[in-house]
């Protein structure tokens, strides 16, 4: 079956999910993985779809036009075969919290260190909190360490960053428990 990635974003209000999924239901699309959330005042939807017959973006035709007319932005991408399933990610899972007074350039240095260490970010959220006078930036990262990398090594790399950026960083290991 051909898979597609569908992303939709627009001003948040009740009923967006119903509108989108009604169209998908009528088309006969299957929703596999999906993640939808509020970011700022926007509702953002990311869905992996499959359809028993449809092979290309064009076949969707004007199906999503009513959403666009409603002020939602819609983007459809056809996946390469196999692109719907994740490679097995084995390794220690950790949560990294980074927070401090808001300033430019917090996300990139942290992400650069993780990327250089071949650490795979599997989830990342950032939010601007605090008051307009004293804004605080909070970033939460869930990441998987590559085989052979100890959490302490990441810890000491991030410790150096802590001083440079004047932010607080905490790392903890998450051990999923199978019961």
């Amino acid at each position: 079956m051909t898979h597609f990635a569908l992303t939709i974003i627009g001003r948040d209000r009740p009923g967006i999910v119903a509108k989108v999924t009604e169209i998908l239901y009528r088309l006969g699309c299957n929703i596999a993985d999906s993640s939808c959330t509020i970011l700022g005042g926007q509702f953002a939807m990311i869905l992996i779809l499959s359809h028993p017959k449809m092979q290309s973006n064009e076949e969707f035709g004007t199906s999503f036009a009513p959403l666009e007319a409603d002020g939602l932005s819609v983007f459809l991408r056809k996946l390469q075969p196999g692109g719907e399933s994740a490679a097995e990610i084995d390794g220690e899972i950790c949560m990294i919290s980074v927070y401090g007074s808001d300033k430019p350039g917090i996300v990139y240095p942290v992400a650069k260190i993780l990327g250089d260490m071949q650490i795979n970010i599997t989830d990342l959220n950032t939010k601007l909190v605090g008051t307009p006078q004293r804004p605080v930036y909070v970033m939460m990262i869930e990441a998987v360490l590559p085989a052979g990398l100890e959490i302490e090594e990441l810890s000491s790399a991030l410790d150096r960053l802590k001083k440079d950026l004047q932010v607080d960083i905490a790392i903890r290991s998450i051990t999923p428990v199978e019961l």
Partner: peptide, 13 residues
């Protein structure tokens, strides 16, 4: 809070 999984519900935590 724990990140739980279950032998009866594979591949999800």
């Amino acid at each position: 809070v724990s990140r739980e999984g279950c032998m009866s519900v594979p591949d999800y935590t």
